[in-house]
Simulated assay, not measured.
Amino acid sequence: MVDIITLTVAEGPSAFGIQDYVWVSLSMLVLIGVFVWKKVPGMIVAGLDSKIAEIKQQLDEAKALRAEAEALRDEYAAKIAGAEKDAEAMMENAGREAEAILTKAEADSEAMVARRKRMAEDKIAAAEREAVDAVRASAANAAAAASRSLIAERHDSAADKALADEVIASL
């Protein structure tokens, strides 16, 4: 007795005589058609365009703030240069005073010259320290105010974490 084995190809489910893969293709076409009909790509593009515009605005504001900070830096650098010129002028005046004292009284001139030079240098050092401290304090206050407003307006917790990491790394 000979057995004949017949193999049948398993067919997937079908409805109305249409195979399942055709139904999936038709469903995808209908879905894509609905997306195009409802203008979903246009909405996505409009959303991306608004994000781009917002980012450009933030970049422009950042450029303006940077220019302002650079102007402040240049202003304070000029103030420091002026303080250095004043210090040089004070040194010259102290030297002239020392020469006048030397010619006036030779007996006590060495003691008096040393005392006057020391006083002048202390005054110069104090004036330099005050000028530098004032410039640093003003720059720090301006930078802190600008940073505070920028951070308050544009940074979320993730950006704050990244900024903190960057500041720590720069120290």
Results as ranks from 00 to 15, higher is better:
Val2Tyr: 11
Val9Glu: 10
Ala10Pro: 01
Gly12Arg: 03
Gly12Leu: 05
Pro13Ile: 11
Pro13Lys: 09
Ser14His: 00
Ser14Ala: 08
Ala15Ile: 02
Phe16Gln: 10
Phe16Ser: 13
Gly17Phe: 05
Gly17Asn: 08
Gly17Met: 10
Val22His: 12
Val24Gly: 01
Leu31Thr: 02
Gly33Asn: 08
Gly33Val: 10
Gly33Pro: 01
Val34Leu: 04
Val34Gly: 02
Phe35His: 04
Val36His: 08
Trp37Val: 12
Lys38Phe: 13
Lys39His: 07
Val40Gln: 07
Pro41Ser: 12
Gly42Gln: 11
Met43Asp: 09
Met43Cys: 13
Val45Thr: 10
Gly47Met: 14
Lys51Phe: 12
Lys56Val: 10
Leu59Ile: 09
Leu59Asp: 09
Asp60Pro: 00
Asp60Thr: 12
Ala62Ile: 10
Lys63Ile: 02
Ala64Asp: 10
Glu68Asn: 00
Ala69Thr: 02
Ala69Ser: 07
Glu70His: 15
Glu70Gln: 03
Ala71Trp: 09
Ala71Lys: 15
Ala71Met: 15
Arg73Asp: 11
Asp74Met: 13
Asp74Val: 13
Asp74Pro: 01
Glu75Lys: 13
Ala77Ser: 11
Ile80Thr: 03
Ile80Met: 06
Ala81Val: 01
Ala83Thr: 07
Ala83Tyr: 06
Glu84Ala: 05
Glu84Pro: 00
Glu84Thr: 05
Ala89Asn: 04
Met91His: 04
Asn93Tyr: 05
Ala94Arg: 02
Ala94Gly: 12
Arg96Trp: 06
Glu97Gln: 06
Leu102Arg: 03
Lys104Arg: 15
Ala105Lys: 12
Ala105Gly: 01
Glu106Phe: 08
Glu106Ser: 14
Ala107Cys: 00
Ser109Val: 14
Ser109Tyr: 05
Val113Thr: 15
Ala114Met: 11
Arg116Met: 01
Ala120Pro: 04
Glu121Ser: 07
Asp122Phe: 07
Lys123Asp: 12
Lys123Thr: 05
Ile124Asn: 05
Arg129Ser: 15
Ala131His: 03
Ala131Asn: 03
Val132Ile: 09
Val135Tyr: 14
Arg136Cys: 02
Ala137Cys: 00
Ala142Pro: 00
Ala142Ile: 06
Ala143Gln: 10
Ala146Arg: 11
Ser149Tyr: 07
Leu150Met: 02
Ile151Phe: 01
Arg154Asn: 10
Asp156Met: 15
Ser157Phe: 02
Ala158Arg: 11
Ala158Ser: 08
Leu163Tyr: 09
Ala169Trp: 06
